[in-house]
């Protein structure tokens, strides 16, 4: 169990850093697009779509990393004032009954949609666009996997912490 959470956390961390690199590339690529187009009258839709692909990857694949760092916004009117034990319980229940159903459901509903895109080897409808729409769409499935695995690791942590805090409270 401990090994699992450690490995998952490390993987999320690695993925988060990789997505960070993506955002930097996005900035450089976008600047290059503008400079090339308005300075040299050169431009391709492929570059524009490249930024869009990186953008989608960073947002979706970064979701687990963001969850790990607890950076998803909460309405913390009550949350901030309850005990750590209750916070762990809230997160455990939330992951189990809100997050898990959502990511499993989105995965199931998206599966055929993504598969269809692979089937067609879907390309961009734009002139000179990228021919990897199926990879862009696959991000939806990867998003679900990232969030699911990270949430599982966090539920283990929450469960352990909740048990420990409960024992302390009982003593």
């Amino acid at each position: 169990m401990n090994l699992y959470t450690k490995k998952i956390n490390a993987a999320s961390e690695w993925l988060g850093n990789a997505m960070g690199l993506f955002t930097l590339i996005m900035v450089l690529l976008m600047a290059a697009i503008v400079i090339l187009r308005y300075g040299f009258d050169v431009g391709t839709v492929a570059m524009q779509e490249g930024v869009l692909y990186l953008h989608g990857a960073a947002l979706l694949l970064g979701a687990g990393y963001t969850l790990k760092h607890d950076d998803h916004v909460r309405v913390d009117v009550f949350y901030r004032s309850v005990t750590a034990r209750t916070q762990h319980l809230t997160n455990f229940i939330g992951h189990l009954f809100l997050l898990m159903p959502v990511v499993v459901f989105v995965f199931v509903m998206s599966f055929e949609y993504v598969l269809n895109s692979w089937d067609m080897m879907e390309t961009s409808p734009e002139p000179g666009g990228l021919a990897f729409v199926y990879i862009q769409k696959s991000l939806l499935l990867l998003f679900c996997v990232c969030l699911f695995i990270q949430a599982l690791a966090m539920m283990i942590n929450d469960f352990v912490a909740f048990r420990q805090l409960s024992h302390k409270g009982a003593r």
Binding site: D41, V45, G128
Partner: peptide, 9 residues
Amino acid sequence: QRAGGVPVN
């Protein structure tokens, strides 16, 4: 694009 124009999306 082939005519030398720059299509913008």
